[in-house]
Design a protein around this nucleic acid. Structure first.
Length: 233
DNA sequence: GCATTAACCACAG
DNA sequence: CTGTGGTTAATGC
């Protein structure tokens, strides 16, 4: 869990937390980023960025965890994904309307670097390799959303909840035992169901010995069964 | 018809 | 914020 500890350096060129994208910058470009970035630490629960507001910076997560979500109808939200250290977050607003199209809220104490959008765009326009790597990342993120769209619309609740838990296992923590960073309500927002249904499913999974929930920890006991539930939808 | 799925509501802790 | 149970609407045998 050491990657969630804030090891952010004061300057970009000796920072261990930055996105891999920045390894494609030359010394001058890195210096430019360094001179035009702001480092901010957020406490758990604080809003890092708000859907609809003007996008003045792109950001890079140094430590912690946060939820990236769409604010939908009547105050209801859909969690798109959990962002973790070294994730770079731009968003479609960069070349569209310079607005944020999703909100991000810290789940743990989270350290973030804000890089000026104009500086980022300038480097994108001059450094081809950097631009290509950025597009790779961006495309992968888009495909992830396509994938989620399919499973959220074509699977039944058990399959969706299994996918949410497997997502935390495979993409976020990489170990079967991890802290419960999401409330039942947030878990329901991640798997597109009502809060009551999420509670009920977690109870069922627990009763069947697939998972164990204690205090603020969740342990996945039977990954294979979860994967099976995910498959049959 | 009858069963299943899943949301909504109310209420309790 | 969680947990439960009852009700209801839609969909599928």
């Amino acid at each position: 869990m050491s990657e969630y500890f804030d090891k952010t350096s004061k300057h970009c060129y000796d920072c261990q937390c930055m996105s891999h994208l920045f390894s494609f910058l030359n010394k001058d470009e890195l210096q430019l980023v360094d001179a035009n970035k702001i480092h901010v630490r957020f406490k758990a629960g604080e809003t890092i960025k708000k859907q609809g507001t003007f996008m003045s910076h792109v950001l890079s997560i140094n430590s912690g965890l946060a939820k990236l979500y769409l604010e939908g109808i009547e105050g209801r939200s859909a969690i798109l994904r959990i962002v973790k250290p070294s994730n770079f977050i731009g968003g479609p607003g960069i070349y569209h309307d310079q607005r944020h199209h999703f909100s991000i809220t810290a789940l743990l104490d989270t350290s973030v670097c804000f890089i000026e959008l104009q500086v980022f765009k300038k480097i994108l326009s001059t450094n081809n390799q950097f631009a290509e790597e950025f597009l790779k990342d961006f495309s992968r993120d888009v495909l992830t959303v396509y994938n989620r769209l399919i499973y959220l619309t074509q699977k039944q609740m058990p399959g969706r909840m299994a996918d949410a838990l497997l997502y935390l296992l495979d993409d976020i923590f990489n170990q079967p035992r991890f802290p419960m960073i999401l409330s039942r309500f947030e878990l329901s927002e991640l798997s597109a169901m009502s809060r009551e249904s999420a509670v009920k499913l977690l109870r069922d999974f627990q009763k069947d010995g697939l998972i164990r929930i204690s205090d603020h920890e969740l342990e996945i006991l039977d990954v294979e069964s979860l994967r099976k539930i995910s498959q049959v939808g």
